[in-house]
Simulated scan of single mutants.
Amino acid sequence: MRLSQFFEQTPVQHVQNYWNSRPCNIRHSTKPVGSREYFDEVEARKHFVEPHIPGFAEFDRWQGKKVLEIGSGIGTAMINFARSGAQVTAVDLSDKSLELAKQRAQVYGLEDQISFYQANAEELSQYVPIDTYDLVYSFGVIHHTPHPERVIDQIRQYVKPGSTVKIMVYYRYSWKVLWILLTYGKGQFWRLNELVATYSEAQEGCPVTYIYSKPEAKALLNGFEIVDMQVDHIFPYYIPDYKQYKYTKEWYFRWMPQPLFRWLEQHFGWHLCITARVPE
């Protein structure tokens, strides 16, 4: 069965319900939710575990520019773009996530630089006024919607020649996929689509999770000029300890030399980070 056939019948409402039940990264801090201390800790933890994000996003590069973020979640990237001087349009399917993102903007005094829209990204133009942006950014988002190709088609309406598109999707040939297959699937490769969706996120049971090879990602972005495509990120920590805010590495990563671990991340990482541009 093709991956699209496995997921394309999933109602978007199921995806919304899932992310409303536990917005991404909401448990990255034990401080009072919505406080400045909470948001500071959420950001610090996210960038500690995923240190490649600032380099990929290039936050400072977009000073004075217009940024459209599709799937802003609770606003970690959003606030960094705004803090760097960008004018940001933040879009998310989850109203619970947007509530926290709006609160975050107020806490940091950046609400004048950010516009918020609750929207299904597959139908973006029905919710977000058509405009052109210097950057369209979507990190770990469009692989969770039933029809990712529709999101890309919507993005085409918000860019101009020279615009940049930065997208992260999950990588098919990653350590994470192998780990899910062996740990939860006991090698039942014919259940891979179901298994990856179920165990791709911190909270089990994500309704939709696509995974992409590099050629599949290029095909998804047909018409855009691929500037860079990098694989990165392996989560090395023992999950029960991590949930208690302890950073204990799995035994098989604990004694691995850092250069070897980085080699693994850059070849078998979970994140396929793509930078593309609109041809002149």
Score class of each variant (00 low, 15 high):
N193V: 03
Y173H: 15
W175I: 05
S200N: 12
E201H: 11
Y184S: 04
A217M: 12
G223Q: 10
F189S: 11
E225H: 10
I180T: 08
V227Y: 09
G223I: 06
L221H: 01
L220E: 03
T198S: 00
E216W: 05
Y210A: 14
S213K: 10
S200P: 01
W190D: 12
L181N: 08
K176Y: 08
F189R: 13
K214H: 02
I211G: 02
Q188S: 14
Y184K: 09
P215D: 06
S200R: 08
Q188R: 15
D228K: 15
E204T: 09
S200T: 11
Y210W: 14
A219L: 10
Y210R: 13
P207V: 02
L221A: 07
A219E: 13
N222L: 05
W179T: 01
F224V: 03
Q203N: 06
E216F: 06
N222E: 06
I226C: 09
F224P: 03
V208H: 08
L178P: 00
E225W: 06
A219I: 08
P215K: 10
L182G: 03
L192N: 12
T198D: 00
I211Y: 12
Q203H: 05
W179H: 08
T209F: 02
L182R: 12
T183G: 08
I211R: 06
E204R: 11
K176R: 01
A197P: 00
M229W: 12
D228S: 14
Q230N: 11
E225Y: 04
E225F: 07
A219H: 06
Y173T: 10
Y210G: 11
R172S: 07
F224G: 03
Y184M: 07
A217H: 05
F189V: 15
A217S: 05
W179L: 01
L192D: 01
W175Y: 09
L220C: 07
M229R: 05
E194V: 00
Q188M: 15
V196K: 02
P207A: 01
W179E: 01
C206R: 07
E194G: 09
A197R: 01
L178D: 11
E204P: 04
P215Y: 11
Y184H: 12
Y184L: 01
Y184T: 00
W190Y: 14
I180W: 06
G205W: 00
S200K: 04
L181V: 12
L192M: 14
N222I: 01
